Simulated scan of single mutants.
Amino acid sequence: MRESKRLVQIFRSLSAARQQALLDYAEFLAGKENAETAAAPPAEPLSIPRPAEENVVKAIQRLMQTYPMLERNEIFHEASAQMTRHLVHGVAAVEAIDELERIFARQYQRHLEALNKDLLLP
């Protein structure tokens, strides 16, 4: 017997008050399911194109949006280093942004490797 048919049979066997309670609970669970799905970051990077003219701060913001699944704290140090290279050491914005893109891509690969490792654990 399919689960939905079983659920209908159980529902029909309940009093009106318990039917309402079951409906309330089902709506609660459905709401939690939707909230959990909406709260979960995407598994793959988003496609946010790099503008022709972009400063380093905007690039970091774009890359954070592109890779929402990454832990910001893990990237912060390397991103800060690129900002320092640009502002203090005079590295061109384009060069710093290119390096930022490599950093984010590398962090994403580490993220995938960690996920795969977790899946292989017993």
Rank of each mutant, 00 (worst) to 15 (best):
Q65C: 07
A30S: 11
A16W: 04
V57Q: 09
L29K: 10
A30V: 04
K58Y: 07
A40Q: 15
E44W: 05
V8C: 07
P49M: 01
A35P: 02
L29V: 10
E33G: 07
T37E: 14
R62S: 03
V8W: 08
E53R: 09
N34F: 08
L63F: 03
A26Q: 04
N55V: 01
N34T: 12
R72C: 05
L14G: 11
L70F: 05
I48P: 05
F28D: 04
S15I: 06
M69H: 10
E53L: 03
D24T: 09
A17W: 00
P68Y: 05
A30T: 08
E71D: 15
R50D: 03
L23F: 05
M64A: 15
P49G: 09
T66C: 09
E36W: 12
G31L: 02
P41N: 04
E54P: 01
L14R: 15
M69W: 10
D24G: 09
S47D: 15
D24V: 01
V57T: 11
L63A: 01
Y67Q: 05
N73Q: 14
A39Y: 08
M69V: 12
M69S: 13
A39F: 08
L14D: 14
A35L: 12
A52H: 06
R18A: 14
E71P: 01
N73I: 12
E74M: 07
Y67L: 03
Q65R: 14
F28N: 00
I48N: 08
Q9Y: 09
M64Q: 15
V57C: 00
Q19Y: 05
A40T: 15
A21C: 05
F28P: 00
K58W: 04
A26Y: 00
E27A: 09
E33L: 13
E53W: 02
S15D: 15
P45N: 01
E36Y: 12
T66M: 13
A52T: 11
P68T: 15
E53C: 01
E71M: 08
S47Y: 05
A52V: 09
L70W: 02
H77M: 13
R62F: 04
N55F: 07
L23E: 04
R50Q: 01
V57H: 07
A35H: 03
V57P: 00
A59M: 05
M64D: 15
P41K: 02
A26M: 08
A39T: 07
G31E: 03
P68A: 12
Q20C: 08
Q9E: 15
V8L: 15
N34K: 14
A40N: 11
A52G: 06
I10H: 14
P68W: 04
E33Y: 07
A16K: 11
E53K: 12
Y67E: 02
E33N: 08
Q9G: 12
E53T: 13
R50S: 02
K58E: 14
R12M: 15
R72Y: 10
L29N: 06
H77Y: 13
L23G: 03
R50W: 01
H77F: 13
P51K: 10
M69K: 07
E33I: 08
P51S: 12
E71Y: 03
T66W: 03
F11M: 12
A35G: 02
R12S: 14
L23T: 06
E74Q: 13
D24C: 05
V57S: 06
